[in-house]
């Protein structure tokens, strides 16, 4: 079999699948192979193209899987990758070549399929801004840096997750726990209050007393507008799905 015929063979396979879906294709929707979709964000004609990785059924309804696999170019933000690259930590995103070392190394992925760093980076590179920012999974990174240390391309994946979170926050998509943390920092200069009760417990063990000095921390928070940022007005689905943990169990994220 020549290289060409092998390729044809592969395309024919794809056609079988695509062919059945094409029955339902309407109007000017154009089906493109997945690999082409990667190039589309940089394509100047992208405004008039609608790229489908899957096409709706004749009745117009889409299955959940199809909903996930549909990419409309009009929904993509070709500048999303630049925006991430402009954030501290996000600089290296363009170097990703999708080897998947990150996902293979990820301890969150090992227990929760929803989280897949390679997929997040791919989505970000494709310009799927809305999907990435409103997803619950960007908040699931545990910041363990296993992926970042192993990435053969030097992509700072944990940094990218941080960059994406910072962008989400500015879009007012903030997990609920941050408001409490900022409020506590403002009032006490620390994440947990050290009041009389805590100091009594400390004294029993012979530990020195702690007097809170929140002034400078509060002024920094005022300077950066952290309190306003933490408010948000849209809650990522993570918080709707997960019951809020007791406040003393929340640690925070990076």
């Amino acid at each position: 079999m020549t290289k060409g015929s092998r390729q044809n063979g592969r395309m024919a396979e794809g056609d079988e699948d695509g062919g059945s879906r094409q029955n339902g294709r309407r109007g000017r929707q154009v089906g493109v192979p997945c690999c082409l979709a990667a190039l589309l964000p940089c394509c100047p004609a992208s405004k008039i193209l609608i790229a489908y990785l899957g096409v709706p059924k004749p009745d117009g309804k889409m299955t959940d899987t199809e909903k996930l696999s549909v990419l409309r170019l009009e929904d993509l933000d070709p500048n999303f990758r630049q925006k991430i690259a402009a954030e501290p930590g996000g600089e290296m995103i363009r170097f990703c070549f999708q080897c998947g070392t990150c996902t293979a190394s990820c301890p969150v992925r090992a227990v929760e399929d929803k989280f897949n760093p390679r997929r997040i980076i791919r989505m970000a590179l494709l310009g799927m801004r809305a999907e990435v920012l409103t997803s619950s999974f960007v908040w699931l990174c545990s910041s363990c840096y296993a992926c970042q240390e192993r990435c053969p391309q030097g992509v700072k994946i944990t940094g990218i997750m941080g960059a994406i979170r910072n962008i989400a926050v500015r879009d007012r998509l903030v997990p609920a726990m941050f408001a409490g943390q900022v409020a506590s920092l403002k009032a006490h200069g620390r994440v947990y209050e050290v009041g009389e009760l805590e100091n009594e417990k400390r004294a029993k063990l012979g530990l020195p007393q702690i007097n809170e000095m929140p002034d400078e921390v509060r002024r920094i928070l005022e300077m950066t507008g952290a309190e306003e940022l933490a408010k948000g007005n849209q809650t990522p689905e993570a918080n709707q799905a997960a019951a809020p943990p007791p406040p003393q169990e929340s640690i925070g994220g990076a």
Binding site: E87, P88, G89, W139, G162, A163, R165, N166, V169, V174, F178, Q181, V182, L185, G189, R190, V191, M213, P214, E216, V217, T224, A226, L229, A230, I251, G252, G253, A254
Partner: peptide
Amino acid sequence: GCCGYPLGALDY
């Protein structure tokens, strides 16, 4: 005071 870590995800 706080080392800053908890707010890294909010605002670098």
